[in-house]
């Protein structure tokens, strides 16, 4: 533990968490540079830097500012948003398997997207809006159904699973009613990905993150106390129910904007907080480290699908599952061998 103190400010943090976070940020920068310079149109680092300082040629300008940078930034922000959303939910429900799936958000968003695609053949923006709207409504319904003098994590998870199953049935039904073309479009949305993502998506995610990230960080301390149980948290001066609702809203908002921008990318919300928590050895929710890990995971995954399978336009969700899953399995097995895991 290290402490920083000035007359007005005093903070305490763990050296290991700082070290791990710095390493993740450095790896993210490295992956970002690799994404910038490689691909069908290789550039040198010099050319990239020249472009950023406004001295690049039109060709490099196009490759960087239209093709690579917006996709990179969208991926980074979507990854961070999903990881934060998952970290909050895992902490609130005290369930390491929690992610936006369990409060019905993901399946609800899918219902919204499929409905827009299949029933009205809507545009990409309309699909994103439909997904967000129905996802938010589903989460609100789950919260209200689970409400009985406050919401307990366990009730929320059970109701969420039930409602998710229902929405999944609706989704399957909608797809059977679709034309082949709509069904394909729906399927593409369902896998999620960063193909053809541009500045519009990046701007929306950035704007929402700019609001919700500070909220999450401010609420993070109370989230850590809530992990000890409502009684202990209340004793320490946390208004348990109000804090939980605020955190759920932040979490769902983050999941919503990520899903609107890139579809339901699997596994980041589940794996990134777990990875971050284990690497930092933190006893709390570790929101900053989770967000960094989410961004890193998505940037590396997207780099992998773009460069290893350049012709297939593989969705990034496949790589997040493969890379994040492998890493998590390795980390857990390694911990259990040492006998220190829980």
């Amino acid at each position: 533990m290290r402490t920083i103190r000035t007359p007005a400010v005093s903070l305490r943090f763990s050296e290991r968490a700082l070290l791990v976070s710095t390493a993740m940020a450095a790896l993210t920068v490295a992956a970002a540079v690799a994404t910038m310079v490689t691909g069908d149109f290789p550039l040198t680092i010099g050319e990239v830097l020249a472009t950023f300082s406004g001295n690049g040629d039109g060709y490099a300008d196009f490759v960087i500012f239209t093709l690579r940078l917006p996709r990179l930034i969208t991926g980074l922000l979507v990854g961070a948003a999903l990881a934060l959303s998952g970290a909050i939910l895992q902490s609130l429900s005290r369930n390491p398997l929690a992610s936006p799936d369990i409060i019905g958000f993901t399946q609800g968003a899918a219902t919204g997207a499929i409905a827009v695609i299949v029933l009205v053949q809507g545009s990409m923006t309309a699909t994103a809006l439909g997904a967000t709207a129905v996802g938010l409504l589903t989460s609100a319904a789950v919260y209200l159904l689970a409400f009985k003098q406050g919401v307990q994590g366990f009730r929320l998870v059970l109701i969420g699973i039930g409602v998710s199953a229902m929405m999944l049935a609706v989704n399957s039904y909608l797809i059977t009613r679709a034309t082949l073309e709509s069904a394909l479009a729906a399927q593409t949305w369902l896998v999620g990905g960063l193909n053809n993502r541009g500045w519009d998506e990046a701007q929306v995610v950035a704007a929402v993150l700019a609001v919700l990230l500070p909220c999450a960080l401010v609420l993070g301390r109370r989230l850590a106390l809530l992990e000890m149980g409502d009684s202990a948290a209340t004793g320490l001066g946390v208004n348990a129910e109000r804090t939980r609702l605020a955190l759920l809203v932040v979490s769902v908002g983050l999941a919503a904007v990520a899903t609107a921008a890139a579809g339901p990318i699997s596994f980041v919300a589940l794996a990134a907080p777990q990875l971050a928590r284990r690497l930092t050895g933190a006893s709390g929710p570790g929101l900053v480290a989770s967000a960094l890990m989410g961004g890193l995971l998505l940037v590396v995954s997207d780099f992998a699908v773009q460069r290893l399978f350049p012709t297939t336009q593989l969705p990034v969700g496949i790589a997040t599952g493969a890379i994040g899953g492998l890493y998590l399995v390795w980390l857990l097995a390694h911990e259990w061998r040492k006998g220190s895991g829980t």
């Binding site: 400010v9 000890m228 050895g281 709390g284």
Partner: peptide, 26 residues
């Protein structure tokens, strides 16, 4: 519930929460 991986010192320090502020945490 004691959060997994928390040390005695960290847990006891959480008792200071009502006296702390966002930028004055320790």
């Amino acid at each position: 519930i004691a959060p997994g991986g928390i040390t005695v010192g960290e847990l006891v320090a959480r008792g200071r929460y009502p006296h702390q502020r966002l930028l004055r945490q320790w």
